[in-house]
């Protein structure tokens, strides 16, 4: 059966940007229906990895497969139809500033479905409601929204075509802790009810402990470990020890 293929399979990926080595044999896989998170120090190539997974960048060596299909070996048409199964939430939302939130969400529906305008209105409302975006703000421009609202609107757009895989680049960065936790709950709920596979890049320890089922740690250009948060935090690596110790200091201060 097709569904036995992992949602994401990253195989010995090497990335060099100019002189700089970013990834040196990064390998991991994310099974379907799982909420996975990638952590690693700033500048260790987490966002680059995310961009490689969706085919916006090409790794120097190695291969990446989504749902069993090698992303970088597809024709443009095949890549486009594969990407329609993937929703991406960019770090700063990347909402189209020329369009209202309503039109941002409606855009993929108008482009890739035969739905009429009245049905699209219904669908937009549903996606916005799923992403917890207030329906009476749909006419606003992205520039009129707060940071949290931008993330919600961008999430609604990412969900527009009912993707099987949701990629999140720092979903809670720039949000206050309360909004961030609500956003985490939202992701967890969506993953549960829609059977979504979620992979996020995050530094938010609360997100990690709250909703992450699989943690992938990138250090020294490689995957230092992958597993549940508890397992990953036990890995004997100086960076990981230091990373998780910030949590203990934090908890101790409370």
């Amino acid at each position: 059966m097709v569904s036995s293929e992992p949602a994401i399979f990253v195989d010995r990926v090497v990335t060099r940007l100019g002189e700089q080595l970013i990834h040196d044999g990064v390998t991991f896989s994310v099974p379907r229906g799982v909420v996975a998170a990638v952590i690693g120090s700033s500048g260790c190539g987490k966002s680059v990895l995310l961009r490689e997974i969706v085919g916006l960048m090409r790794p120097t060596a190695g291969s990446i497969s989504l749902f069993g299909r090698a992303v970088h070996e597809l024709s443009l048409g095949e890549l486009a139809s594969l990407r329609r199964r993937v929703g991406m939430l960019f770090q700063f939302g990347a909402l189209f500033s020329a369009l209202s939130v309503y039109d941002n969400i409606a855009l993929p529906l108008r482009e890739f479905t035969l739905l009429g305008e009245s049905v699209i209105r219904e669908v937009v409302a549903v996606k916005a409601a799923l992403a917890d975006f207030p329906l009476d703000s749909l006419a606003k421009r992205p520039s009129q929204l707060s940071g949290g609202m931008v993330k919600r609107a961008a999430l609604a757009r990412a969900l527009a075509l009912d993707p099987e895989l949701l990629l999140l680049d720092e979903p809670t960065s720039g949000l206050d802790p309360i909004t961030a936790r609500r956003f985490d709950d939202l992701i967890a709920t969506l993953s549960d009810t829609l059977g979504l596979t979620v992979m996020m890049v995050t530094h938010d320890l609360d997100s990690l402990f709250g909703i992450t089922e699989q943690l992938i740690v990138l250090t020294n250009h490689r995957v230092a470990g992958s597993g549940s948060v508890a397992e990953a935090s036990m890995i004997d690596d100086p960076w990981i020890r230091e990373y998780f110790s910030t949590r203990k200091v934090h908890a101790g201060a409370e």
């Binding site: 309503y102 219904e122 409601a129 207030p134 329906l135 009476d136 749909l138």
Partner: peptide
């Protein structure tokens, strides 16, 4: 659950750009 949630949404609140 999905159908229940979707059918509950009040689309009368939607404000489209004019």
């Amino acid at each position: 659950e999905l159908l229940r949630r979707v059918l509950m949404i009040d689309t009368g609140l939607v404000r489209k750009p004019i």
